[in-house]
Write a protein that binds this DNA or RNA. Structure first.
Lengths: 255, 255
DNA sequence: AACGGTTATTCCGTATTGCCGAACGATAGC
DNA sequence: GCTATCGTTCGGCAATACGGAATAACCGTT
């Protein structure tokens, strides 16, 4: 493990999680790094455009970081889903989102807003514990037992009284999700938010993403859940097809 | 300058520009790095999720790289533009794009497709020389002379016979662009593609992005250019307002 | 199944270089 | 004008990144 590289990644991740410009001193304090070392790291990152130096010595993530991110493995997935999600958001008239699993957390990789005045606020690129949301429950349900055992924390934090925190109940929920083909969540993340999610599979049959809809809970009920889930399952199937079709040409790309 | 960090950034940028998974040996050859060193770097990057190790020793940019990119400084701009661009693409019935300047190149940061069968192919996250496109001409036209002198290469490469390659003609074009408030391009990038672009300004009055439309040239003419430009100028103004309004709350964010 | 060519990985000695204490300017607040 | 905090420079020591050589896994071919 390269120490200097690891430190640089710490810096980059810190700037990413806080999503704002920071002065050198603050980064130094938060990461407990000496100022000269940090200065050197930031200089290197800035020289390559991974961070930008705003006036007043404020550092923030730069254009190159964005460019690199745009070339990451999830990007084709996002591109394939965009149109479908647009249509779903319009049809159901609620926000649609796409999430992937990372350890025991989910990352929001795409979001399409609907026209409603009251909407669920969600930011692309953020992480939340998987058991707090329908998308996370769905993706966990489709992982192997080994995976679950490896990533599940000893204690499941509750976000609301409705959050599932008992491991046994969670595993039982996984079974239900697999049987039904979709996951639901009623106020387990925020007490006034409900959601549903359906799986997107890759060519190997692994669940790689969750197509989901989140709505203010007062606009939902059991019937809404059922009809929404069927729309999501259809949409996920469409995305599946697009992935399978785009995979082949991708392989054929020359050097 | 930190050598090990610089090498790691080289690796990451290589994976980004080629947009595909690569085996260790190929990276080693392209960057002329020893395999043990590279192995160590990739291990560190993989441990943090910045690259992913697919089966068969293929490395590609991972989820963490995407997350970091999603927190970069351009992201708020993209979020603010998305809705406006959607509307423009629908109204004009041609693809809309958003580009920013980086040295003497432009980076495509967002793209909205229209419903047309014949469209201009463009990938988000890619770079092209600024003088090849309307967006680049527009952004260069709004930079200081010092900036232009610093970044303009000695020789301007021509992409087509229509590309402006004479520095004097380029500087003259900048004047026209500033006077009209928008830039056009007729086959300077690809011979059968035309485009128009209007500037998005930040609070300091600096042109930070170009809102543009690219279309197959046979669907365009002088009248089309004029009407498209006026739509773009309106759209850019709307984005301006959104930026100014969203800046304030952003500053107020607590630690 | 045995083979050559390619690959990924481990090991280790060297000297390169990342690291931080201390000191220096620069800046802002009171 | 003082003080506190910030960004930056300098330099010397020790840690550690580096790559050659050896090893082990892999793949397609015969």
């Amino acid at each position: 493990m390269l120490k200097s590289l690891a430190k640089a990644l710490d810096v980059v991740e810190l700037l990413a999680t806080h999503r704002r410009a920071m002065p050198l001193a603050e980064i130094s304090r938060r990461l407990k790094m000496s100022k000269p070392t940090l200065h050197e790291i930031l200089l290197t990152l800035a020289m390559r455009g991974f961070v930008e130096r705003r006036e007043g010595g404020m550092y923030q993530l730069g254009l190159r970081a964005w460019e690199v991110g745009a070339a990451a493995s999830v990007e084709p997935l996002i591109a394939a889903s965009a149109a479908v999600m647009q249509k779903i958001a319009a049809d159901i008239n609620e926000d649609a989102a796409l999430s992937v699993l990372s350890g025991f957390e989910i990352v929001n990789v795409h979001h399409v807003t609907c026209g409603q005045a009251v909407r669920v606020y969600a930011q692309v690129g953020t992480r939340i514990p998987a058991h707090h949301a329908a998308a996370g429950l769905l993706l966990l349900a489709h992982q192997s037992d080994d995976y679950i055992d490896a990533v599940m924390p000893a204690r499941l934090e509750a976000a609301t009284p409705n959050t599932i925190t008992d491991p046994d109940r969670l595993r039982h929920e996984f079974k239900r999700i697999r049987a039904r083909g979709y996951a639901v969540n009623n106020g387990g993340w925020r007490i006034d938010v409900a959601g549903a999610a359906a799986p997107v599979f890759n060519a190997d049959g692994a669940a790689i993403a969750a197509l989901c809809v989140a709505a203010p809970r007062y606009r939902t009920n059991r019937e809404w859940m059922r009809s929404t889930a069927s729309v999501l399952i259809d949409g996920a199937a469409t995305i599946n097809d697009m992935i399978l079709n785009s995979q082949a040409p991708r392989e054929r790309l020359a050097s």
